[in-house]
Design a protein around this nucleic acid. Structure first.
Length: 680
RNA sequence: UGGUCUAUGGUGUAACUGGCAACACGUCUGAUUUUGGUUCAGAAGAGUCCAGGUUCGAGCCCUGGUAGACCAACCA
């Protein structure tokens, strides 16, 4: 209780309230309950961080429980991947549990329900039962099998279990209320027959419990105090509680379910079904494709556990649907890597640079700082020669004063090396630059302390020495979708928004030789370019680097989009599109009008024009109630007045209501309102 | 058109039981810088979905609207 309680999220608040009401802190217990039917993604990370974070805060155990009640979808491969991801994120579970461990107990409880007349075996088709279920607005009707005798139910259920029946032929249902406004309470299924081997129980069972029956009872068996899930399960809470009521022993802890909003990330999708579709259609190379929002994809891309936890932390927990901008995720990884990544140099799009006054064939070994953010990080060797590669976009024969890079006749610093001046260029027949000839200030070598070495020049470039450079493949990624929320369009499938250029492979990039020693765990900053990490496709002969994220770039923002070639297109954050759903015209007018009195000049004129435009879609019936708007809300009254003017012009007839509103407007002390009123 | 939930700057979250709307990302300036990175200093941007009401005072309370999400799988 010592922590400075910096505003709790609503889940933490619930727990704090429970504790304050006398709940024994030693009985706090949480769980993370994935279904092993896919890989974990960044949305799951929110739940993982919430549950395990709560465990850490209260020193309470957190179970990892696989919700494995559907053998037709679930596989051991997923179990392994999920476990790996969670421990990689840095969390430790108290116990590794499986809903399938409780099949016998749940079966026994089901028998008990049957004996108490609270469950029955139905043998209708799924379609027939769906039909009887009714709709949200009309009550359902009872199954003809609803009142079978206990003996018959017991017999049939026993035979379901022993494998006498075909898949889909019989189900066990709870007998609750076919007229409940909550569809889930209309005699939900407890068990269905599935003739498929289970990844853990093999062929021992032919019947499998449904989610609602299995989940709450598993929480109860494990004595989980707070069962946290996402909002779409809100409706299930009534059922969750009903099931618990049937078997609850008051000597034991009774779990409670609470719901929070799932997290969405912009420019991607976040459902296992859709991610699976991306995998199966070969839109990506697999669940761990670096463009995927999966934990494994982010890991391969170069994200660190710390950055993902930080992201979860900054994103927060709430009850409203939201789309978090990827820029927050990118901020988190940059912040982490800036502190730790080793600085190196690599040239992705090379152009040859020759230093004419550097002795031919000479080589020297320079010292390069490993990380300026960390004074103790040391240096590494960096070979230099008279023939270098620099980035093609770092040179222009001529450029404006805002271009801080190399131009003819101007000086720049070669990072960790010399100051050079471009003298001339060599071009091929097509006019492409093939060589840049420069002279170097040989007294300006970095770190020598000479006066020349500390001279200030306009820019600094990264480079590699051609005779020493190693070749590597570099993969750059862009967002996987072109739409901010690709799965939010009713009329369009999310696959239509797939970005065709989300992957850009540079087959031959040139890197400083230090990188030969790189290992999978290393994180690098290719100076001036971004953060990179080795991909698992790397071999000893062929290194493959993934670009995790580019450096923030305030230069690229100044350039017109057309000037950018495809491969230099870095991910610019062009502010997120802001469609807030379709508001009605009158609502829109109110919104604009509200701020009207704060505006002046062009902005005022623009607002007025917007109102006039929107007014065309407003009916008198919508407008007239606003005549009563409180006198102090001048902005709204002005908006209404302008709109009224438009309606009158369109032929709306005057009436006493209108006249009174206009008269009041003319008499108002606000000049703008009086003016608009007088205009009518 | 039934039920449930949500509504605060461009985005994501704050604001203890009503007391002049805060933080982070993003955006824009300027300084520093051998990374157009980092760091530092600063700015713009919301009267809290709308309308009424209660109150000395409302984002928080009440009433009525509006918008969005979820709910009728032998999925979880």
């Amino acid at each position: 209780m010592t922590e400075e309680s910096a505003s709790l999220n609503f889940i933490e608040q619930i727990i704090a309230d429970d504790l304050a009401a006398g709940f024994d802190p030693n009985k706090l217990r949480f769980r993370f309950p994935p279904e092993p039917n896919g890989y974990l993604h960044i949305g799951h990370a929110a739940s993982i961080c919430l549950n395990f974070g709560l465990g850490e805060q209260h020193n309470a155990p957190v179970n990892l429980r696989f919700d494995d009640t559907n053998p037709s979808k679930e596989e051991q491969e997923y179990v392994d991947a999920i476990k790996y991801d969670i421990q990689w994120l840095g969390f430790k579970w108290a116990q590794e549990c499986y809903s399938s461990d409780y099949f016998q107990q749940m079966y026994d409880w089901a028998i008990q329900l049957i004996k108490e007349g609270k469950a029955y075996v139905d043998e209708q088709s799924a379609a027939a039962m769906a039909e009887q279920k009714g709709t949200p607005t009309t009550p359902g009707v009872a199954s003809p099998f609803r009142n079978r005798s206990v003996e018959e139910n017991l017999d049939l259920f026993e035979r379901m279990k022993s494998g006498e029946f075909e898949q889909g032929s019989y189900v066990l249902r709870a007998k609750i209320d076919m007229a409940s406004p909550n569809m889930l309470m209309r005699d939900p299924l407890l068990y269905r027959i599935v003739r498929k081997a289970h990844h853990r129980t093999g062929t021992e069972w032919c019947i499998y419990p449904m989610y609602d029956w299995a989940h709450g009872e598993s929480d109860y068996i494990e004595q989980v105090s707070h069962s946290l899930c996402t909002l779409e399960f809100k409706m299930h809470r009534e059922l969750y509680d009903w099931f618990l009521d049937q078997i609850y022993d008051s000597a034991k802890l009774r779990p409670k379910q609470r719901e929070f909003a799932r997290r969405n990330l912009s420019y991607t999708v976040m459902s296992k079904r859709k991610l699976l579709e991306l995998v199966q259609t070969n839109t990506v190379t697999g669940w761990d494709d670096p463009r995927m929002p999966t934990i494994s994809g982010l890991r391969r891309r170069g994200y660190t556990p710390e950055s993902i936890r930080k992201f979860s932390d900054l994103s927060g927990i709430s009850k409203r649907d939201s789309v978090t901008d990827v820029s927050l995720l990118e901020y988190c990884i940059r912040e982490d890597l800036n502190k730790s990544a080793t600085r190196v140099m690599g040239v992705l799009d090379p152009v040859k640079l020759i230093i004419t006054n550097y002795p031919a064939g000479k080589t020297e070994i320079l010292k390069a700082e490993n990380n300026p953010e960390d004074p103790n990080s040391g240096t590494h060797d960096l070979p230099f020669s008279g023939e270098l590669y620099i980035e093609r976009e770092d040179f222009k024969e001529e450029a404006g004063g805002k271009f801080f890079r190399l131009t003819l006749g101007n000086e720049v610093r070669l990072k960790s090396a010399y100051i050079i001046k471009a003298e001339s260029v060599v071009k091929d027949d097509a006019g492409n630059i093939t060589e840049i000839h420069c002279s170097a200030d040989l007294d300006s070598k970095s770190g020598t302390g000479t006066e020349a070495s500390t001279r200030k020049v306009k820019g600094t470039l990264h480079w590699v020495s051609i005779p020493h450079a190693i070749k590597a493949e570099v993969r750059e990624y862009d967002r996987l979708f072109l739409d901010e929320a690709p799965d939010s369009h009713e009329d369009k499938n999310f696959m239509e928004f797939v970005n065709p250029d989300s992957l850009h492979v540079i087959k031959e990039a040139y890197l400083e030789p230090f990188l030969k020693e790189a290992s999978m765990d290393d994180k690098f900053q290719f100076q001036r370019l971004g953060y990179f990490t080795l991909d698992k496709d790397s071999t000893a002969e062929k290194l493959v680097f993934n670009k995790t994220v580019g450096l923030r770039d305030s230069w690229i923002k100044q350039q017109p989009a057309a000037a950018l070639t495809s491969h230099t297109t870095r991910q610019v954050n062009q502010g997120s599109g802001q469609e807030q759903g379709q508001r009605s015209a009158i609502n829109e007018i109110q919104k604009i009008a509200k701020k009207y009195t704060n505006l002046s000049g062009d902005k005022l004129a623009a607002a007025r024009a917007d109102i006039i435009k929107l007014a065309g879609e407003v009916s008198y019936e919508e407008l007239s109630p606003l005549f009563n708007t409180a006198a102090k809300k001048v902005g709204t009254r002005i908006g209404v007045m302008i709109t009224l003017g438009v309606l009158l012009n369109k032929g709306q007839e005057r009436n006493s209501e209108i006249d009174a509103f206009i008269r009041a407007g003319i008499a108002d002390e606000n000049e703008e309102l009086a003016k608009e009123a007088a205009n009518i």
